[in-house]
Amino acid sequence: MHISDGVLSAEVLIAGAVLAAGGTAVGLKKMDMDQMPRVAVMTAAFFVASLIHLPIGPSSVHLLFLGLMGLLLGWSCFPAILVGLLLQSLLFQHGGLTVLGVNTINMALPAIIVYLVFGPLVRREGNWLPLAGAACAGAFAVLLSSLCTAFSLLFSGEEFTTMARLILIANLPIMGIEAVMSVFILSIMRRVKPEILGASLSDTFRGGEDVASK
């Protein structure tokens, strides 16, 4: 998912930077200082995840933790992913500084989408629905991120369908692993610290509460 420097055209880079700045602003605005340690810990997890490579499939791929980032952080995943990608590009030369915006969008947007779509399912009562939601979030985040990456490469002369197929096939094992991992981690959290999931629930509705209290 990490696009290198010099691949994309200036228009795509600027569009990505503007969108990423917007998303980060929203994320920071919605973030409560109380959530800061959690955001930082998840950023650290995201930062190291890209070093775990899987020697499966036709290409070289690595873990992303996108579904978990979305489910646990909500909108805060924007600043988290931005910082993680910045450090990855500075320390590991993974990705690049000029593509930071585009890469942030390609990863944070899918995380937010799965948070909005599967988040309510994950916070439901019951045994099977939340776990199914977690599995879907893990898999779909990687799927959407692959499509976003293919879409950004669309403007640099690569054909969308071929590129999308290539990236998707390369990331199929990651989809499976992230689905299993999301189920695993969320089922532990539900049993041990259910308020972690509840807390990210409350900040979706906080805007509504504010309006009501006024």
Partner: peptide, 19 residues
């Protein structure tokens, strides 16, 4: 707040050690 994040800390520590 502190103990709420203890589990996350444990997970990340485990990850880092693994890495």
């Amino acid at each position: 707040m502190l103990h709420r994040n203890r589990l996350l800390h444990a997970i990340v520590t485990a990850l880092v050690v693994l890495l």
